[in-house]
Simulated assay, not measured.
Amino acid sequence: MLKKDRVAFIDQRLQELYPTQPIPLDHKDPYTLLVAVLLSAQCTDERVNQVTPALFDLADNPFDMAGQDVEKIREIIRPCGLSPQKSKAIKRLSEILVEKYQGAVPEDMAALEELPGVGHKTASVVMSQAFGVPAFPVDTHIHRLAQRWGLSSGKNVTQTEKDLKRLFPIERWNALHLQIIYYGREYCSARGCDGTVCDICRTCYPERKNPKKTRKA
């Protein structure tokens, strides 16, 4: 199957499977989404959703969060891992939002990436899911599937993001990001599929007999 045919099949199949794409992280506005995405680094969405209710009971806006003690934040978010760094980042970014943006989350990629604890992927998620701006956040799971499906041979998530953006129309980026995540969790997980098991892998590479080795992000 040629790459263009794989792209068309994958696009169609994912739209059939996931016509709607609910956002996995519970939130009520751009600020709570930003904090939730920050917490999701090296942590499952399920765990984040278990932790954020207590955190947002404590403070659900940058004004209130900026006034909290770092140790109090850290104690609540401890189950998410990396709590020393994440608690400091949450407090400091909240202070910056108050000082520089009147408490609003900036609708700007560069401004988001300047915030403590906010990398390119986190900023991309906020831009796409909070503001509807086309972005294609790539995590290690999307990186793995893009290689299994022959969409990218990138050595890192940065190259994979560039490859996927070239292959799919911009109006599909936001939905595709979530659709690939859902598909990866349900059918093409790291352990559940090795590139020879799930429907998309078998359709794209019917002759593939051996597991597909993927470059780690």
Score class of each variant (00 low, 15 high):
R6V: 03
E16T: 10
L17Q: 06
Q21E: 12
P22Y: 01
L25T: 10
H27M: 07
Y31D: 08
L38I: 14
S40T: 03
S40R: 07
Q42T: 11
D45W: 00
E46V: 15
E46Q: 15
N49M: 08
V51W: 10
T52I: 15
P53G: 11
A54S: 14
L55V: 10
A59F: 02
D64V: 13
M65S: 04
A66L: 00
I73M: 01
P84A: 13
K86T: 07
K88C: 03
A89S: 15
L93F: 14
L97P: 02
V98K: 03
E113Q: 15
L115P: 05
G117K: 01
A123D: 06
V126Y: 05
V133D: 05
V133A: 07
P137W: 07
H141R: 09
Q147I: 01
S152G: 08
S153V: 07
K155H: 14
Q159E: 12
T160S: 06
E161A: 03
L164I: 00
F168K: 02
E171V: 05
E171P: 00
W173A: 02
N174E: 08
N174S: 13
N174Y: 03
L176N: 01
H177R: 02
L178C: 10
G184M: 08
E186L: 15
R191T: 11
C193V: 09
R202C: 09
R208Y: 07
K209T: 05
K213F: 08
T214D: 09
K216Q: 12
K216C: 07
